[in-house]
């Protein structure tokens, strides 16, 4: 007997490679989206700071706009986007 696979459709779920499950600002899972967004993933990406903490981009931007100093809300270090 010979079995030939012609096509294989698999099912997978995607997730962010991050050191936490939830966004520290909105407390939503990273794999979900921030409260202002409707669609997860490309439309609501994560960003990492130089301090290695990461957030939904919309969350951290909103945070930085509302603060006099640009600090990471988790560790109070100066916030710098880590473009890795």
């Amino acid at each position: 007997m010979k079995v030939t696979v012609k096509s294989w459709t698999g099912v997978a779920t995607w997730r962010w490679i991050a050191n936490d499950d939830n966004c520290g600002i909105c407390r939503m899972p990273f794999d979900s989206c921030c409260p202002d967004c409707k669609l997860p993933g490309d439309d609501c990406p994560l960003v990492w700071g130089a301090c290695s903490h990461c957030f939904h981009i919309h969350c951290i931007v909103k945070w930085l706009h509302s603060q006099p100093q640009q600090q990471c809300p988790m560790c109070r270090q100066d916030w710098k986007f880590n473009n890795k």
């Binding site: 030939t4 096509s7 997978a12 779920t13 979900s32």
Partner: peptide, 10 residues
């Protein structure tokens, strides 16, 4: 063989 995937937002 061709392989495809359905990538879901869990």
């Amino acid at each position: 063989f061709s392989s495809n995937a359905m990538i879901l937002s869990a």
